[in-house]
Every structure is written in structure tokens, then in C-alpha cells.
Design a protein around this nucleic acid. Sequence first.
DNA 1: AGCGCACGGTTACAGGATTTTCACAGGCCC
DNA 2: GGGCCTGTGAAAATCCTGTAACCGTGCGCT
Lengths: 276, 276
Amino acid sequence: MSAPSSTHRVAIIDRDSAFLTVLGKRLDAAGWQHRALGGAVPADELVAMKINALLVDLTVLPAEDAWPFLERVCGMMPGLGVIVCTTDSTVAQRVRGLRLGADDWIAKPCHPEEVMARIEAVVRRRRRASGETERGPTVVGELEIRPDQFQAFVGGASLDLTRREFELVKTLSESEGSVIERGEIYRRVWGYEMAHGDRSVDVFVRKLRAKIQKQSPSWSYIHTHFGIGYRFQPEPVDGLAPPPEASASAPAVLPEDEASEAPLEDADATASALSS
Amino acid sequence: MSAPSSTHRVAIIDRDSAFLTVLGKRLDAAGWQHRALGGAVPADELVAMKINALLVDLTVLPAEDAWPFLERVCGMMPGLGVIVCTTDSTVAQRVRGLRLGADDWIAKPCHPEEVMARIEAVVRRRRRASGETERGPTVVGELEIRPDQFQAFVGGASLDLTRREFELVKTLSESEGSVIERGEIYRRVWGYEMAHGDRSVDVFVRKLRAKIQKQSPSWSYIHTHFGIGYRFQPEPVDGLAPPPEASASAPAVLPEDEASEAPLEDADATASALSS
DNA sequence: AGCGCACGGTTACAGGATTTTCACAGGCCC
DNA sequence: GGGCCTGTGAAAATCCTGTAACCGTGCGCT
């Protein structure tokens, strides 16, 4: 599942533990995923981390490696936001770094909040340029949700959803497996607070169910939770042979594939190999 | 150095004549087009200048105008690189500026070369992903889109598109197959944020459809997606034999609208009104 | 200078499509 | 069984788009 575009993924190459601690707290508070690395990391490992931004103190690298490292990283990942953060840099160094592809260069000591703001600025700019929205199609059960078409499909056939209906499946499917309150659904789809007694969500869930069931009758997707809201989870309808749509082989009813979500928070295997 | 790409267009809002002089020389040396403004400029004038980057000393604006100005400019032109350059800023101010949409914030005094490098970094980031325009002609369906002519053709005959109309087909065809929201289309073609209730996109789509259909009646290109926007995709119109349009009227088109190229170098009329 | 035209942009209107609102029937839970 | 909740179907209210006519500007021509 595509990450909720709001969260940033940041890698930090530094050894100043005080700085790391303070910054780490701010990053957590902002809800950004982050990971500290103790030194240079092969560029392809950085790629694998799927980060949006890299904050690097060039002085932790051996002097002769610093510039090549910067150049390689920037060259390999044009979409990555690169921010250099060092003490005592000269104008010439900063210019060189920026010319090599860095997006920003901050002088230490610096306020963590400013670092945050600069990371955000860099990532923001990068996102804007690269087409803004997440365009990756998502597949859940027999359903295929395509943001680039503002539409959902089953076996290639369009469900013919209206905009609201589409936003609704998209929203629900983004929280696949967990129950969402009506108010929350409304807020995410309509964009503002739900008025008391508004039944819009129910009505649209009904329309959605109808359109989905018409094309994918052997699966059940939207489950009602009395007094709370709805839960999106594809399940084969009991007592119904799943008409094998040739390939629709993904009956994984318990889809905790959050695995793909966090190549960032866990072990420091990559770092330890290099951290002195 | 990424010189080969088209030249940068930079506007500078500042009054420090020494700084302007020195920086101006560097900008000339680098071959970037630039223009100094003495004070705030209506956001839509900035739009008309078609600049890539704006360097602004917020202290030349009346204190109460500075933040709103920054916010308005960044909001209206998401693609514009905005760099603030001031003396004596606090962390809080820098954070605020960056959060409002500025891409970078430099402290004066600063070395002009570093300013150059930072401008370049900001502009580079913006271009890299947005895949600079291709010069090669594109063929979609019966349509041939020739960026070098600022014109589209069907079987060699010009569609006689105006500049806007051309930018519109070009933009749409670059995202062939996927649905684009009105606001996004507007942003790409007009270059800034669409005002609520603006119908320009619809009107130009209509003009475009008319001109295309006149020369290529057996194909359908621009599809409406209710509540969202449009999708460009050539499709043969069901049951229609291509009637050979014998109209030999098409007057040879010489597209010398290079006029739009140079709204940057001239007078400071706009500035004087505000420089009090 | 005066004129007319092409072009970009705005507005008004009409026909549809979509969204909201309502009233009622059927469930769920205590 | 009673008091909430949710599912349904349809009417009413809104919103959206295609269309055409209308301005203001800039430009070339006379």
C-alpha cells in the first residue's frame, strides 16, 4: 500500500549523538519515519530504504570520500532530497556541494526545528515537481484501485464510480483491515467535519457496495461495525466458490503486508557495517 | 554544472544596490535572465514574468506585508523556486518562511556565488523531475504534435491552434491515458493556481475539441471525467468512416509567437509603485 | 491615429449527473 | 420489547459541464 503521502522518510548520516537525539524527537513528533546511520552507506542501500530525504554531515566521512559520496548519491537518486549539515564550511565547499546536487547546506550548530523545516521544504519541492500524487495502483481482493484513473476496476472492467465513491473506496482501502469511524471517514473524504445526523457515509457505502458487488459478487469488501463505522477487508463470501478470475490468486484474507512499510525503522544492520 | 538546459529566469526583490550589482554580474556571466524589482509586486505580475526563481529580501517589504506576500506567491506558483535572503533573521522566522513555502533562506551578508548555487539547486530540483519538455514531435492517433512548431497537425494540415490551445493539447497528451484534474491542467498550462470557479479550462477544451474534430472527425481525443477533469486518449469514434475533408483552406501557418519570450528585461514600473 | 480582428478570458444559461436529504423498513443490543 | 442504528429507495437540491455570446487587449493595417 502506498504510504500516506504525508509521511516523510528520512535517513541521517551523523555521529553527533546529542544532535541525533534531539532531532530524533522532533522527527517522531512530526510523525516522520527516520533512521540514523553512522557513516557512509552504499548508494544502493540508500535506494532500498525508499527515503525521501537524506541529511548528512559530510565530516563523518573520510575526507577523500565525502565529495564522491555526495556526487554518487545525488546522481543515483535524482528524486532524493539531500541536505548537508556541517560545522565550519567555507563558501567554496558549500557551492561545491550544492553544485554536486545537494539541495541545501546547513551550518552547525543549528536549531533542529530549522532542520525540520528545511527537510520539509526540500521534500515538498521534490514532490511538487514529480507529479504530486501517488500513482501506484493498488490491488485488494479482486479490486484494483487506480488513482491515475480516479477509478476502480475488477478484471479490467470499470466499476464506473463517481468521484465521491472513488474517494471513499480509496480512503477505506488505505486503512484496510481496521475499523474507521463514520466521522473519520467523512473527514477524510469530504474534507470537513460531519454534521450530526448526516447519513451521507451510509448512503455512499451502499452505492459503493452495489457497484462493487455487481462486478465482484463472490467477495465481500465493506463490513459494518454497529455503532462505530466501517471496515474495508476483502473476504471471499462463504458458501460461494470463488470464480477464479484466472489470476485473482490473492485470497490472502489477512493481509498484514505492513512489512513493506518499514525498511526504515528496524535494525541497523546496514549501519553497523560502517559505523566505525 | 547543468548549463546546457534552457536558461533560468530569476526575479530579485531587493534594494541593496551593491548586492544587486555584484549578483547581477554573476547572473549575466552565467547567462541567466534576471530582473531586479524594488519592492512587492502583485503576484499575477510575477506569474506573467514566467520566472523559475524568485530571490527576495523580505525586509524591503512593509513588515505586515512580508508574510502574506510570501504565502501568496508560494501558494499561487507551486513550481516557482523561492529563496529568501535577509539580514538578522531568527530561527523562528526562517522556519516560518520555509513552512509558508519558501525553498531556501539565506542570511546576509552572503557570497554571491553561494546565492547562485542555491538558486541553481532550487531550480534544478524543480526541473529534474518534471522532465523538461521534449523537442521531438509526438504522434497520437491521427494527431501530430510538434513542439518546434508550437502547432499540431493532422495529415500534414495544421490545426491552426493558438498558443494556449497548443499548450493544452501538449500538456494533455503528455499524460496520455490518465485523468488529470482541472486544477492540475490549469497549473501546468497557465502556470499558477486556478481560481475557484474559473472555467477557462473547459472553454479551451471546447475550442480544442472543435479544431481537432474539424480535421480528424473519426477520432475522439479528449474525454471528460465528471467531477474530476479530462483524459487525453485517441480512440476511433464508433461507427464512422473517415470522411475525407477536402477543405484546402488551411492557410500556411507561420507561428512566430516568440513574443512571449521576453517580459523580463524591461522597466521597473511595477517596482516604483511600491518602493515608497 | 483609427479600425478591425484574433485571442485570451469571463459570464450566463440549460441540460444532466451527482450529492443530499427524507421517510420508512429492518436489525442489533440490552 | 424498546430504543437506537443501519439499509433502502426515491425525491429534492446542488453541482458540473457544454455552449455560446460578450469584453478588453494587443497588433497589424490603412
